[in-house]
Design a protein around this nucleic acid. Sequence first.
DNA 1: CATCAGACACCTGTCACTGA
DNA 2: TCAGTGACAGGTGTCTGATG
Length: 305
Amino acid sequence: MRVPRDEQTKNLVIACENWREVSNAILKHKELAPVIIIAICKAVFKEFSDYLKCDSKLLATNPDELARFSNKLFMEEIRIHCPVWFNCQLGASGLSSKEEAVGGRVNSMAPSSSTLARLRNPQASAVHYSISTILFHSGIKHDDLNRLNGLGVCMSPDSIVRLQGKMNMQLEGKVDIWRSAIEENRGALKLAKEVLQKQVALPHLDVSKQHLESYEFFSTKGHESLITLLNEEVTKAGANVNATDCMQIVIKRLEGTKLPLYNRVITKYLQPFRQLRDVVVRHMPHEYSKEMSQKSDSVSRSLTT
DNA sequence: CATCAGACACCTGTCACTGA
DNA sequence: TCAGTGACAGGTGTCTGATG
């Protein structure tokens, strides 16, 4: 027989070895059961309180974090931080172990947990943002969003619009990065070609800032990029190699730089970016480039059946 | 057919509340 | 104190049906 060490256990177990029977007996006990339910309630209260103070995925608000959010990860957090509540949910769902809580089952458990967590802290709204985004892109009406928000199912229209605004700002930020990359590439490429053209008769290329500042296509960023690439090529090739040859390799590298394909669309349709068309990669080289460059043969549908 | 009023949808700004 | 959120008022644009 196991001998309980602490007083609480001694008092509780008395002389019984079977814990499952003890727990079942407690829940059936007229006087003990209500007290146990209060204890469970307090335990769940504390679990959620502590959970919402940690760096929970449910508190995500920026588009990147929300994009990475998943019900599976959220429920794993719940399982670790709120074990009592998690097991209550398992029971309510008719599941007997955490291994059964997968796929659609875990997806069904997530909204209930998140809705209750949001009751405690309105900022714990990652699941509600996910639902709202789906509804928003499905063309839901403003008033319907208000109704669903009132039912606690999704965010308010105001919050959704705020999120969409953030997403747009992030997109504009990326466009700025791409534009900067294009401008740097274009500056370095044009400067490199100008250097070759103007210094073709000289025994050594002079790529110093002082010398190139008067060049038509000189820019600080473009020059820095060109120097970096040139130094890399000189290091690779060795000190005795002709600098003109290295410059030609750099030009090929700049021409072959794989800038985002989006740039092709941007420079085609947005007037302010049109001048950058010549430095944008039209087609990224790949395994099937050769096959795709050939015209397809048109075959009558009747011949294919 | 043109015009107008009303309904509806939605955006914007402001304020108050809440939790960290 | 600050960020996130919801409620609300006021305004704009669009659609629809009634009227002359």
